[in-house]
Design a protein around this nucleic acid. Structure first.
Length: 579
RNA sequence: GCGCCCGUAGCUCAACCGGAUAGAGCACCGGCCUUCUAAGCCGGGGGUUGGAGAUUCGAGUUCUCCCGGGCGCGCCA
């Protein structure tokens, strides 16, 4: 089923195209910017009038005249306003019919794409040498949200967790592991606090030249495939992965073992990547390193910017790996889109990798390569984030703190609930609040890490949305009737009508997120939806109402719960029946 | 030096891709629980969208310059 916006845009665009005799006329229909303008508005008339060098109001009059020749049941009126806007009011009865069609005929609230495609999403991708910290939160949950959204749209989603499991630091860690304990049985204990382990190893590396030397030798042995070293490495990776999985599970993130595609997966491809680039004369050796110089990456003074593909000592770099990964997405995974949910600081790197990949035809034009960049985490002082001691905050610590605060709150609000239930509620709401605090911000801007805003439960937060859901469930549970038997038939108040229209717009927002990959749009929508529900809840008694009004309101409440649950699910947040 | 991103209310952020009177939350002030969960609802104050130009019916959004902040840029990932 088309969304209302799609439908109206098509309708008005066709009329506009007919009247203006322009084939690609876009009426640019959006939801009305103010309630007094109606439900939707067409903004495109003025742009076309300018193109035609004609009066926009006159053009609008002709478009509306054209629209009025069609008896369109969904639309109550088209009205011209201002310099040439067309304000659109919808027919309330038609809205009810549309809603009941979705509820009772098992049509999805979120429409699926006409053309399913294969989309690879690279996200989370922690470095397995260290423990996950708060900086990993964004990429992990934004990627997860996008995967859920695109999957719901009916696309084939291939999640790729491109974890860092290779390189010099693993030599250091293995050397340190051997030094402190020859017995690998102790590994889990040793690595219980991965971060501390890493720091200790780093300290040894920096302060003791002989240790640094043995670390370097470990790398060589590891890379040459020495079975003893490889074995330790594997155990190390395994242990570190189980740390990550514990976090994913708590965060309700849809990443599993089968989504793993570590850096080392591409090791055997790297030599070939360099050879292919060499064969087409893209490689220039500069100071002993193999580089690709592309004209689009030269500075204004003409000095070209290299993409280093192979170090002078023969080692490969992450550009090499990313080229192999891009080729894999195109050739093996046959993707139409490849999304890389990665920190914005790597945007130059991705521009270069994408350009080289295209130049070398590692990927064809059918694959869209997209860096889904997100902002850097800052401290409260606006400078790059560090704790007072100069360290980092572990992701686990943040989650624990969120759950603890949620437990205190639920205990204060609902002391009569038994403790097990309060613990469950706290786990859900605490973690949801943290995720939502991050997802609800525009991903491209840098963001401030603050305990207080991260762990807030008031206002525009996940608990607010979950609370709206719990209120509805509470009503529906009291009534004990199968929801879908009821129809939405009366929109006797503005609150009811606003709520219904908003629910029907979920699909429009999901389309926007699927196209542009901004989860905060979905958060904004859900916050507005919950807010409109709260107003409905205050203004319109449900269980106390009678007859058809009661039935219709119950159905509307059930429909709201459905929209909220689906929206929250796309954010990776599970609502509660009670809180 | 070159390049990318950002600057919106005291604080944290929106603003559907150039649209109509720039909106929320937090904080602050005032009202609403014998009626479906007060993690809520209603009301109030608070803005030269960093500054100056330009483009046009119309600019927070596009362009130029300036100021301020962040981040990248040859052998880490």
């Amino acid at each position: 089923m088309q969304t209302i916006k799609q439908y109206l845009n098509q309708l008005v665009s066709q009329a506009l195209g007919k009247v203006a005799d322009i084939s690609a006329a876009n009426a640019n229909v959006i939801t009305a910017s103010r309630p007094e303008f109606g439900d939707y508005q067409a903004n495109g008339i003025m742009a076309i009038a300018k193109q035609m060098k004609t009066n926009p109001r006159e053009l609008a009059i002709r478009v509306v005249a054209e629209l009025d020749t069609v008896n369109e049941p969904l639309v109550a009126s088209f009205k011209i306003a201002g310099p040439g806007f067309i304000n659109i009011n919808l027919n309330s009865k038609a809205l009810c019919e549309r809603a009941n069609l979705i509820r009772q005929e098992n049509n999805p609230l979120i429409s699926t794409a006409e053309q399913p495609s294969t989309i690879v999403i690279d996200f989370s991708s922690p470095n397995l040498a260290k423990e996950m910290h708060v900086g990993h939160l964004r990429g992990t949950i934004i990627g997860d949200c996008l995967a859920r959204v695109l999957e719901t749209k009916g696309h084939r989603i291939i999640r790729q967790n491109h974890v860092g499991d290779w390189g010099t630091q693993f030599g250091m860690l293995i050397a340190y592991l051997q030094e402190v304990s020859a017995d690998t049985e102790e590994l889990p204990t040793r690595l219980a606090d991965l971060e501390t382990f890493y720091r200790a190893a780093k300290e040894r590396f920096d302060s003791d030249p002989s240790f640094a030397e043995s670390a370097r030798q470990s790398v060589v042995k590891l890379q040459s495939g020495d079975s003893v070293y490889l074995d330790i490495w594997k155990q190390f990776i395994e242990e570190s992965l189980s740390h990550c999985e514990a976090i994913y599970s708590r965060l309700n993130v849809t990443l599993s073992r089968s989504d793993l595609c570590a850096e080392s997966f591409y090791n055997k491809e790297l030599e070939d990547i360099v050879n292919k680039l060499d064969n087409i004369s893209l490689i220039t050796v500069s100071d002993g390193a193999k580089c690709v110089f592309l004209p689009e990456f030269s500075g204004k003074d003409g000095t070209p910017l290299p993409t280093i593909i192979q170090k002078s000592d023969g080692g490969y770099l992450y550009a090499t790996t990313d080229l192999a990964a891009a080729r894999y997405r195109y050739q093996k995974l046959e993707a139409d889109r490849a999304l890389y949910v990665v920190d914005a600081r790597q945007s130059l790197h991705f521009q270069q990798v994408f350009a080289v990949a295209r130049k070398a035809e590692f990927v064809g034009p059918s694959l869209s390569l997209e860096h889904i960049a997100y902002g850097t985490m800052m401290g409260a002082d606006g400078k790059p984030f560090k704790t007072r001691s100069g360290g980092i905050v572990k992701l686990k610590e943040l989650l624990d703190e969120g759950v603890k605060r949620a437990f205190d709150l639920v205990t204060e609000k609902n002391p009569q609930l038994d403790e097990t239930l309060r613990r469950q509620i706290a786990e859900r709401t605490g973690i949801a609040a943290i995720k939502y605090a991050d997802l609800s911000k525009n991903r491209t801007s840098d963001y401030i890490f603050e305990w207080s805003s991260m762990l807030s439960f008031d206002g525009n937060t996940a608990p607010y949305l979950m609370y709206a859901y719990a209120r509805i469930r509470s009503i529906l549970n009291k009534h004990e009737v199968k929801d879908n038997n009821y129809s939405i038939t009366l929109l006797s108040s503005n609150e009811e009508r606003n709520l219904l229209l908003k629910i029907l717009q979920l699909s429009e927002i999901v389309d926007a997120v699927a196209a542009d990959c901004y989860p905060n749009q979905l958060c904004n929508y859900l916050y507005e939806l919950a807010g409109i529900f709260m107003r409905f809840y205050e203004a319109c008694p449900i269980l106390q109402a009678e007859g058809e009004v009661k039935i219709s309101r119950l159905a509307l409440a059930a429909f709201t719960a459905e929209a909220l649950a689906q929206g929250l699910d796309l954010l990776g947040i599970e609502p509660l029946e009670q809180m």
